[in-house]
Design a protein around this nucleic acid. Structure first.
Lengths: 255, 255
DNA sequence: AAGTGGTCTAGACCACTGC
DNA sequence: CAGTGGTCTAGACCACTTT
């Protein structure tokens, strides 16, 4: 069955949004990721099978899948197949994690992924700022988690996570959030984080955070304000991290 | 004339590095950028012309050029041609510039590119650290420039640039470095910056920098340690910036 | 109209994986 | 061995820019 058709029917009204077939094919496949029809870890049909279903050539499907690979949505393995990306895939753990101990210049030597100790959690009505960030209604509620993250050398950062109750439901039965929360969102709620926007600042450590990180009062900390954006372009997590900057740094490669 | 040939000659020794044709084609074209045979702003031959010269199909050249487009090395304009990227191209000004005034959430509204005031400059023997960074010999020399950069609201950052004399020759006749130094490297020395590696930290402002930025002593500043890497994979510039963090932030989108 | 890049197709062959 | 993705080709047609 040919789902896609770019032919210009003489009866059809003015085509408001003409898109290349490979863009349409990508969007159809992304919709299947969003809807959960294709779940993380699952193998996709072969290029030829998808091409036949959509009524396009295999080369067009390939281009769409190449784009989705570049977006980190799928993983392709020669000889095996194409798979929906999982949060724990191949150092995708480190896709959004840029904090590195000083001295780890080589990008080859991966830093360790820090463990989390949850300090507290609460649920309440969203503040005005939270409503703006998540695009929530007046009485919508959010969950807030505070945690301290440590590597083998000790505590490295304190952070607060804010999650809209509307997307995640009730956490009150949830004894703990796991360390890798993006994998948790994916497997438990079908929410796939596609990208994150971060804003970095230097701030003076609040007294309580300085104490938790074993730093002197007012020590300069790296503040990372992150909004995680799901496949459907909604902000699904707001995270504010305060990271020690005397032994750690944030690495970034711009091309 | 067919430059590329993937045929397996029965006489040839073990092929140590089998690469796809499009990778070889890319490398040949990058070499022409490095050598200056193709200079910034210049139009490349058409896909068919390159394909004929290299002895491959037009589709293979297209894939190589697509990769180079993704690397920011060339710019393709439908109906016009393919051009070597220039430092001033289409907001490539902002490719390596991530500092944004607070409140500029929308990536659509570009921040202004800050003006530079050069404070001092000097030339001398490279320190051990500089020799390590640039991979220099014992008696190699470097130029060091200090400058203060401001936008319409006042000074926003102080930074020092270090450049190996070996790559850039003599700056003593040079009255000033321009504001956009990467364009300057490209047009005057044929050095094309392909990527930059940055390390971010939070630090306390030194007294002199605090004064220049009109900030209280020990104010927290964002420190950006940047190494600029040219097409030939050599580090060609080391830059250390101290940026005010009360009215500015560093934005980053991770996919 | 001529020349460029952008899209799309159909088909061939190779490389890798798992049965 | 069959099935998958990876590479490469040849050719058609479209969209855009310039002359």
């Amino acid at each position: 069955m040919a789902v896609l058709d770019n032919s210009t029917s003489p009866i059809s009204p003015a085509r408001l949004e003409a898109q290349p077939l490979y863009v349409k094919a990508r969007n159809i496949m992304v919709d299947r990721l969003i809807s959960g029809q294709w779940r993380p870890g699952q193998m996709l049909p072969s290029e030829f099978a998808i091409a036949a279903e959509l009524g396009v050539s295999q080369g067009t499907v390939r281009k769409a899948l190449d784009d989705m690979t570049a977006e980190g949505l799928v993983v392709r393995r020669q000889g095996r197949g194409t798979f929906v990306a999982e949060a724990e895939d191949n150092s995708i753990l480190f896709r959004f994690y840029r904090l590195t101990p000083d001295g780890h210049q080589n990008s080859s030597s991966r830093p360790t992924f820090p463990e989390s100790k949850y300090l507290s959690r609460s649920e309440g009505v969203a503040t005005q700022q939270e409503r703006d960030i998540f695009n929530l209604q007046a009485n919508d509620r959010v969950w807030r988690f505070q945690r301290l993250r440590s590597n083998e050398d000790g505590p490295i950062l304190w952070e607060q996570l804010v999650l809209p109750s509307r997307y995640f439901g009730d956490f009150s039965k949830q004894t703990q959030l796991p360390n890798n929360v993006y994998q948790f969102y994916s497997t438990n709620y079908g929410i796939i984080v596609a990208k994150v926007n971060e804003q970095l600042k230097a701030v003076s450590a609040p007294d309580d955070v300085a104490e938790m990180l074993h730093l002197p009062k007012s020590a300069p900390l790296l503040e990372i304000d992150r909004r995680a954006i799901a496949l459907n372009d909604r902000v699904v997590e707001w995270r504010r991290s305060l990271c020690r900057s005397d032994t750690m740094h944030y690495r970034n490669e711009l091309k």
